[in-house]
Design a protein around this nucleic acid. Structure first.
Length: 315
DNA sequence: TGAATTTGACCGCG
DNA sequence: CGCGGTCAAATTCA
């Protein structure tokens, strides 16, 4: 479809979103059409295409997530619904999260529980630094789990209404494994930077793609990046992680780009996903490691992009 | 002193 | 009714 065919009345940001999707579609088709041997023999090219696709996701989600994007009634500005398919939600589900976006709270503990909100789960050896500022708000012992589950919300929940939360739970001791569940989507405006797709060269056999947040976290390179955005006075949950970072006045250093609102899900799609890392099958996900390209096919097979066009393209 | 974390209480959901 | 997610007062930290 050509953008020139959009009705003049169509909001420009919507057109931009559609254009982004339009540009990404052939790239994904290209990936789908590639034979396994082609992929293996030309990883650079494949990764380049993946990078372009991720960039398309970035831009599209940024546009759709922006507060100014209000043309789609069921897309609340405060959550990840703008992606439309992060965990395969239906429009009914979105209605549910609309309620969540404006919880009716009358007294302590009285809140609307997030149900069926967008979730994204991955398991990692060392929880990567996703680049966001998280604030711990709870810790609970979980049944049949050796370790507490830690609850984090975006630091900017209060000042910007960012609804993103995540849960971190150590699932195994040796080697340590952490299950990280992201819920909701960042709508906060700072921490803005463009994640760069890089290759983790620490292991030549590992072709996983990770996102480079170095721009904003240079000081974290000395420590474990996983929790660099958190303070941990106690290290019982992450014995190897003692990194502390003051966030209060440091956010301004992040450049202001629009991709921040989607960098997290993108990072989940592309970062550190190797044979060890797992994305839960109950949520919409895709990996960008070379051995995970059938995930791209999966995206296409699931008509994810068709859904997007149905949602956001002019009817 | 302001911000982050801890921790017990509260509540929704299955 | 128990589990899990969230709230918020108290505590800790820089």
């Amino acid at each position: 479809m050509e953008s020139s065919s959009w009705p003049l009345s169509l909001p420009s940001n919507r057109i931009k979103a559609i254009q982004e999707l339009s540009q990404g579609q052939p790239l994904i088709k290209k990936l789908r059409d590639m034979k396994p041997e082609e992929i293996e023999s030309d990883l650079t090219s494949v990764d380049g295409v993946v990078g372009q696709i991720l960039g398309m996701f970035d831009n599209t989600l940024s546009i759709l997530s922006s507060p100014s994007f209000t043309e789609v009634p069921y897309v609340p500005t405060g959550d990840m619904q703008s992606s439309g398919s992060w965990d395969g939600q239906t429009s009914e589900d979105r209605d549910e999260t609309v309620k969540i976006a404006a919880p009716v709270k009358t007294k302590r503990g009285c809140y609307k529980r997030r149900k069926n909100s967008n979730t994204y789960t991955k398991v990692v050896h060392t929880p990567i630094d996703d680049g966001y500022a998280w604030r711990k708000y709870g810790q609970k012992p979980i049944l049949n789990a050796k370790h507490h589950r830690n609850y984090y919300r975006c630091t900017h929940k209060v000042d910007q209404g960012c609804q993103a939360t995540k849960q971190v739970q150590m699932t195994e001791d040796n080697p340590p494994k952490y299950k990280i569940t992201y819920t909701g989507h960042h709508t906060c405006k700072d921490l803005l930077r463009s994640p760069q797709i890089i290759f983790d060269s620490s292991d030549p056999s590992d072709t996983s793609i990770i996102l480079d947040f170095e721009k904003g976290f240079a000081e974290n390179k000395q420590g474990d990046p996983c929790l660099s955005s958190m303070r941990h006075k106690r290290k019982e949950d992450f014995p190897s992680l003692g990194l502390k970072k003051h966030q209060t006045s440091s956010y301004n250093r992040y450049s202001s780009t629009q991709v921040s609102q989607v960098s997290e899900p993108v990072s989940m799609m592309s970062s550190g996903i190797d044979h060890e890392d797992v994305i839960s099958p109950d949520v919409y996900s895709s990996t960008c490691s070379t051995r995970g390209y059938d995930g791209i096919d999966d995206l296409i097979d699931k008509n994810v992009f068709s859904d997007w066009f149905e949602l956001y393209a002019p009817s």
